[in-house]
Design a protein around this nucleic acid. Structure first.
Length: 419
RNA sequence: GUGGGUGUAGCUCAGUUGGUUAGAGUGCCGGGUUGUGGCCCCGGAGGUCGAGGGUUCAAAUCCCUUCACUCACCCCA
């Protein structure tokens, strides 16, 4: 019979790699909470409407990537393609803003987008997501970036490259959009098919195009910085000034736009050279209109999402060796009586918090030693029927090969010895 | 959705102009060492050659179809 395999683009995280995941999550929790962020856990399933309104109807994510279906009650629901919309939904639904308009939140979990899988891109992938709601101050933008880069470095990332831009706000972006449309007028024929389509759907996205022809045209195009209103210009200057306080290097990329419609003002990306085409490991920015657009009060927000798989792929191999605990003790038991004794002792050790392993397949000592070695146990307690009689067993140190006699008749003493 | 690449042992891969019983390394199990791991030596198990069809005396090899994986485009974390 044929075995059933996982769904395309959905990956197993095997025991060998789960330690890395735990390590990164652990670091994130420590650092994010030091910066005052609290964890929030939101459902992975939401009403489709939430994403359509939040991310934007005309975005690729909403148009062709979401897992959307009707459930048995005929409700139209979607597996979340990102976390921000859900977090804001929860913030509004539970009136968190009433007690305190400022909320600093993070969440960790799976997201779903039905794209063609490739390196660094899966249909179920994971994000570390931070959202700071209630502050408009430019210092917060820089603080969020500081926290992010501090975290990335703490997990061993060598040189995260920060790219920044400002997308303006509803009062200045339209004039920029107009001038782009004017600029592109008459040049449609020289653009790629996708960009020709973008002119009517989302002209700003032409900036993102990687086709040589489009890039050349765009190089001549007006840049948003020249169109920012006074408020947006001051805000962006404030972000840069605050980044300077922490000596955070950045490059301003006036062509960087985002694939989600809700971004305003500051946007940023962290990129790397080591991931092939999927070089963005973090994307984020400010979304001052989103909470209002989702039916809430006019509260500003900023956040980012880290691609977990992409981050792991870039981490040094030995980064979390210390975090993954070595197994500790192996009990090699030979003979029926010894097995009985070891069975009890092994589980007693475990209940004391001493990670202990033994073998139940009645093999010889040699193969048990082999297994202890493979599990990287530091010590092996060797018990045969002979040792049961004398109540004295050998405790072997696997590194130094030193072997000492230990008494078996006092389990409290034994436990102390192991700890 | 569109292109390219790859499918042979658990894993990484050889396999000649089609030719007889499909190999190596590694891992696993056992032995050398009657109760002591890693190194070394020896042995063993493990394969519908991705699947289906075709050509041929003969197909892992050639042709067609299909599936899976993978990289890239698109888009994004």
């Amino acid at each position: 019979m044929e075995i059933i395999t996982a769904v395309k683009g959905f990956k197993d995280i095997l025991p060998g790699e789960a330690g890395k995941w735990q390590y990164v999550e652990d670091q994130a929790r420590k650092i994010f909470s030091a910066f005052g962020c609290l964890e929030i856990r939101v459902p992975i399933l939401e009403k489709t409407d939430l994403f359509a309104r939040g991310i934007g109807e005309a975005t690729d994510i909403v148009e062709k990537e979401m897992y959307t279906f009707r459930d048995r009650g005929d409700d139209l629901i979607t597996l979340r393609p990102e976390a921000t919309a859900s977090i804001i939904r929860a913030y509004l639904e539970h009136h968190l803003y009433a007690a305190d308009p400022v909320a600093k939140l993070y969440t960790i979990g799976p997201m779903f987008r039905r794209e063609r899988p490739q390196k660094g891109r899966y249909r179920q992938f994971h994000q570390l997501d931070v959202e700071i709601l209630g502050y408009e101050d430019a210092r917060i933008d820089a603080e969020v970036i500081l926290m992010l880069i501090h975290f990335l470095k703490s997990v061993g990332l060598k040189s995260p490259q920060l790219e920044l831009n400002s997308l303006g706000c509803p009062s200045c972006r339209p004039s920029f959009r107009e001038s782009i449309l004017q600029f592109l007028q008459g040049k449609e024929g020289d653009l790629c098919e996708d960009c020709q389509r973008r002119i009517s759907t989302n002209p700003l996205r032409v900036f993102d195009c990687k086709m040589e022809g489009c890039k050349q045209i765009i190089a001549q195009a007006p840049v948003i910085q020249d169109f920012l209103c006074g408020g947006c210009r001051d805000h962006f200057a404030g972000v840069l000034a605050s980044l300077a306080v922490f000596d955070i290097p950045y490059t301003i990329n006036p062509r960087m736009v985002r694939g989600l419609d809700y971004y305003t003002r500051t946007t940023f990306e962290i990129t790397t050279d080591f991931l092939g085409a999927q070089n963005a490991i973090v994307g984020g920015g400010r979304y001052d209109g989103l909470i209002r657009d989702l039916g809430g009060p006019d509260i500003p927000g900023i956040g980012f999402a880290i691609g977990f798989e992409r981050l792991l792929a870039m981490m040094p191999a030995d980064q979390c060796d210390d975090f993954i605990k070595p197994p500790g003790l192996f009990i090699a038991a030979l003979g029926t009586e010894a097995q009985k004794f070891a069975y009890q002792l092994c589980n007693r050790f475990r209940m004391q918090g001493i990670p202990t392993e033994m073998d139940y397949t009645a093999k010889g000592l040699k193969s048990q030693m082999k297994r202890a070695d493979r599990l990287k146990c530091r010590k092996v307690l060797i018990i045969g029927d002979r040792e049961i009689e004398t109540q004295q067993a050998d405790l072997r140190d696997m590194q130094t090969k030193e072997q000492i006699k230990v008494r078996l008749d006092n389990s409290d003493e034994l436990i102390k010895l192991m700890m």
